[in-house]
Design a protein around this nucleic acid. Structure first.
Length: 717
DNA sequence: GCTATGCCGTTTTTT
DNA sequence: ACGGCATAGC
């Protein structure tokens, strides 16, 4: 195959700020410590590097790549894998920076690499050549279609009339939940019933029905030539495991495989590595204390069992922290030492400098926002910390909403990582659905999406139309003869004509031109649907610009599914302002592996750390603790946890004791910090280490009913 | 029967 | 500002 879909990572242009070494980070070049050097120089056997936060793990990995190249391994025969795109970017950037020779190292996310391999080797193993990739919401749509088709769409009761009439209706799980379960099953290879018992006991009785549903979902995927994210991994595993020469040919591509953030991989990914590296030339790096992806099947067992799975594994532990000041490290160590799981290492530093981390008590969300903005401007303006060296890390994307409004009002530039993706916007998905249909006429998900745009067409008519299309070899013109309401008929005819016109258009239309043609139809839909269509139209302009960077539709669609651009907002400014200094707002998950001079962690309250939904499962609570640990260990010099006493955003679910400081910040942890309180005029006063008095949980329901008052806003201590 | 509309309660984290 | 759900309307 002449042109592989671009990996994105290789083609990404480096921006100047990526190249500038961060202030007082050890330079990439000289002086690895003894453990790091041993890891870099390690020979061919399996290698497990257990590396704590800030211990130079990526740097070690990058040096190992360089060492391999020095030993004569061809760069393109080295494969660097990681789970998240951001980590993959960081890794490849630094490999490039360190050694020109490493420029052609292959690397990316597990999904990205699996995709590349499947396109290249799949057809020889009988996989379809022109599959499309569904993102999570496409997959949920398809699951919804299957769910309705099997009759689970109605607000239904459990079969059998013997249920007590007063009991609540036994709802079948929502499509998204079904997909989560399906995905968990694929990634962990565990029975549905067990997964239900652990995470969704109230759905346990549906286990058999869910399995049926999954069978139908898989059949629909196959029929429509669609692969979801899990299929990318699963197909690769099967390709590698099945006899025959395809697996051998894939294995023959790479001499060494290196995996970063190994604690974030799940059993399916471990299976891929076993099948890919029977020779054992495999290096994995991870930190069990930073495992924060259990919700998608990741497990630290992958690290723990690595030595058992690969004979003669060498284990190297990196425990010296080069990132954080001593007080920040002390607080972080204390926090993680409370974990019920004993982690494998203890981080230390030879630094002695630094201010104690702040624990700031504020009245409410408004005051939290004001404090963060004031303090970060102070750091920026009086201490000269670049905005880009300051991060606000949140547990969930929506928790920064108030802050973002304030930043916008005060004209402080910021960049948000995580949160709503450009591609998840409905109008973008609509336009792409047209392109996907041109690519793959049997794509049931895209048909469903487009049909429902038409006036007078709802679920029912759409489904009828799809049946007709299936019976007519997916010819768009088959939409014309349908017996439906007159209103619907007009739309169906127009849609059929449009798609037929595009399909038979004079050859060589490039994707951006196709989008323009689609927009002649779709812009009108947009203008009729929304009060203010302008921002959405602007998004479509932006999509056209992106599309013009791709020569073929196949490349565009694959790149968008696996390398989605960040938030809409981001794109709008991203194109022309590479040097803009901007504050970073990020989810903790997206901040993994990064570091900043100053880190703010708002919402350090119970209900956020841990999230209310996790609070009754021990393992989930432990993961939440690690999450806070990850957030704290991102900081070099300034760490500031903020604790609003009153925080009752209406969006949060009831029954939780908001305003209570996070249970993870117990007396011992607080003694390693300084308490800072905010005066009425915004002035700060620091008070050392007094433990908080116990505070009874607030009954939110009673509060909302007006039966009790809020706790006094001032903490007496 | 099917679609459009208005109201309610709800938001984890990523590929 | 979004999805699910009930109800009104074709």
């Amino acid at each position: 195959m002449a042109s592989l879909p671009p990996d994105g990572l290789h083609l990404r242009t480096l921006r100047p700020r990526d190249l500038a070494p961060a202030p007082d980070r050890a330079p990439e070049g000289p002086a690895l410590n003894a453990a790091q050097a041993a890891a870099a120089a390690h020979g061919d056997g399996p290698l497990l590097i257990v590396a704590g936060a800030g211990s130079g793990k990526t740097r070690t990995l990058v040096h190992r790549v360089a060492a391999l190249v020095d030993r004569g391994v061809a760069p393109e025969r080295i494969l660097l894998l990681t789970f998240t795109r951001r980590a993959a970017q960081e890794m490849l950037d630094r490999a490039e920076r360190l050694a020109g020779a490493a420029r052609r190292v292959h690397g990316g996310t597990f999904h990205g690499i699996a995709h590349r391999i499947l396109r290249r080797f799949g057809p020889a193993a009988g996989l379809p050549r022109d599959f499309s990739i569904m993102d999570a919401s496409d997959a949920a749509d398809l699951m919804g279609i299957a769910r309705t088709a099997l009759g689970y769409g109605e607000p239904t009761r459990r079969r059998g009339a013997d249920e007590e009439p007063t009991g609540p209706a036994r709802r079948f799980p929502r499509a998204e939940t079904c997909l989560t379960l399906y995905s968990r099953q694929v990634n962990t290879d565990r029975p549905v019933y067990d997964l239900l018992e652990e995470g969704w006991p109230h759905f346990a009785e549906w286990a058999g029905d869910l399995e049926q549903l999954f069978v139908d979902y898989v059949r629909r995927k196959t029929d429509a030539n669609l692969l979801d994210y899990d299929d990318l991994l699963l197909s690769l595993a099967l390709l590698l495991e099945q006899g025959g020469d395809v697996g051998d040919r894939i294995r023959a591509e790479y001499d060494h495989v290196l995996v970063d953030e190994y604690q974030d991989t799940n059993p399916l990914q471990a299976r891929i590595l076993r099948a890919l590296c029977p020779h054992g030339r495999l290096t994995v790096v991870g930190d069990d204390a930073q495992s924060i992806y259990a919700f998608r099947g990741a497990t630290i067992h992958n690290i723990m069992q690595f030595p058992a799975q690969f004979a003669d594994t060498t284990i190297i532990t990196l425990e010296q922290n080069y990132r954080s000041s001593a007080p920040i490290l002390h607080t972080s160590n204390t926090l993680i030492s409370r974990a019920t799981i004993r982690y494998t290492k203890q981080l230390w530093t030879d630094r002695t400098d630094g201010e104690l981390p702040w624990l700031v008590t504020v009245r409410d969300e408004r005051e939290q926002t004001r404090f963060i903005v004031d303090r970060l401007l102070e750091l920026h303006e009086t201490e000269g910390v670049p905005l880009r060296e300051i991060a606000v890390l949140v547990r969930a994307g929506y928790l920064s909403a108030d802050l973002e409004v304030e930043l916008a009002n005060r004209r402080i530039p910021y960049e948000k990582w995580g949160g709503l993706k450009f591609l998840e916007a409905a109008h973008i998905k609509d336009v792409l659905a047209f392109l996907r249909l041109l690519e793959n006429p049997q794509d049931e998900v895209s048909w469903f999406r487009l049909l429902r745009l038409l006036p007078g067409v709802g679920d029912r008519t759409a489904r009828t139309a799809i049946e007709t299309l299936a019976a007519h070899a997916w010819q768009p013109l088959a939409l014309t003869g349908l017996r439906v309401s007159t209103r619907a008929a007009a739309g169906l005819t127009a849609l059929g004509a449009l798609l037929e016109g595009l399909r038979t258009a004079p050859r060589a239309a490039v994707p951006s031109e196709e989008i323009q043609l689609v927009r002649r139809f779709y812009d009108r839909v947009l203008m009729e649907t929304y009060d203010d269509p302008q921002p959405r139209l602007a998004d479509l302009d932006q999509l056209t610009v992106i599309a013009s960077g791709y020569a073929t539709r196949t490349e565009l669609l694959a790149a968008l599914a696996l390398e989605p651009p960040a938030a809409t907002q981001d794109l709008a400014v991203g194109a022309d302002d590479e040097d803009t200094d901007a504050l970073i707002i990020s989810t903790v998950h997206s901040a993994k592996g990064r570091e900043w001079d100053a880190v703010f962690v708002p919402w350090t309250v119970d209900g956020v750390y841990p999230m209310a939904r996790s609070a009754n499962q021990d393992e989930a609570v432990e993961e939440e603790r690690r999450l806070l640990y990850v957030a704290m260990t991102r900081a070099r010099h300034h760490l500031c946890l903020v604790h609003p006493l009153q925080s009752f955003p209406t969006r949060m679910s009831a029954d939780y004791s908001y305003g209570q400081l996070s249970r993870f910040l117990d007396d011992g942890v607080r003694r390693t910090m300084q308490r800072v309180t905010l005066g009425p005029d915004g002035s700060l006063s620091a008070a050392p280490l007094a433990p908080l008095p116990p505070r009874p949980p607030v009954d939110l329901r009673a509060l909302l009913r007006g039966r009790v008052g809020l706790p006094a806003p001032d903490d007496p201590r």
